[in-house]
Amino acid sequence: MKSRTNGEGLRDKVAGANPAPVTIAPMTQPATGATLLEARDLSKHFGGLRAVASISFRVRQGEIVGVIGPNGAGKTTLFALLSGFLPATSGEVLFEDAPILGLRPDTLCHLGMARTFQVVRPFPEMTVFENVKAAAVFGKQGRRSNQEILSDVEEVLRATGLAPLAGQHPPSLSLPQRKRLEVARALATRPKLLLLDEVLAGLNPKEIQEALPFIRSLNEKHRVTILMIEHNLRAIMGVCQRILVLNFGQLIFDGAPSDAVEDARVIEAYLGGQQHA
């Protein structure tokens, strides 16, 4: 375990992270769509701390892109910048070739970008049904008939497996169910791009195993492009076509998951440099 120059260490870590096997079908289809989201030299400074330091990347239509990195790498800050919850210090973000920095989260939602939160935030006083309905009603601009909204809600509840729980209040749901609700609510806004912030965190291997095909089906059946932050490396390796690796606010890798585990900078970020080992 001392020698980590050839990337074996990270492979070990990936393979040995979960004792229970998580079988993941390899992703084969390459995404060739137009650029949906593009960040150019995006930065966020908190005083002297550079939480996000001139990051540039693109997400193409139809892709599932993973964002990984050690704790404090700036993943969640990056999401907050993209989704309008934090103002950026400098840089540019384009969504469908239009600049979106400075727009409010609700405007971004209307444009077709939805996010989930790392810590689930359901509306506790509203039933599961109402939680999803609120998203269906307000997620898109323009009035839609009640009928359309209800059928949308039904469809989302069915797709997320929450239909039997429609009348429950969120505090009575289990964590995986609440995570599903978080995704259901984002999905009900009919997004083109879905930002998932650690939707798998806190789930056990069996639950993750169930969640992965679900995420993939969002991408395949609902034609949603996905940008997801994840700590579970095995999950992200299996489900993402491309990953971005952040470390200390910088983008240190952008490419195929299989190449990431061979990349010297990624290995150093995760396992420490040779000199420290």
Partner: peptide, 10 residues
């Protein structure tokens, strides 16, 4: 319930 999440769903 949560005004940030509310903004997030439009």
């Amino acid at each position: 319930g949560d005004d940030e999440t509310a903004a997030g769903i439009g």
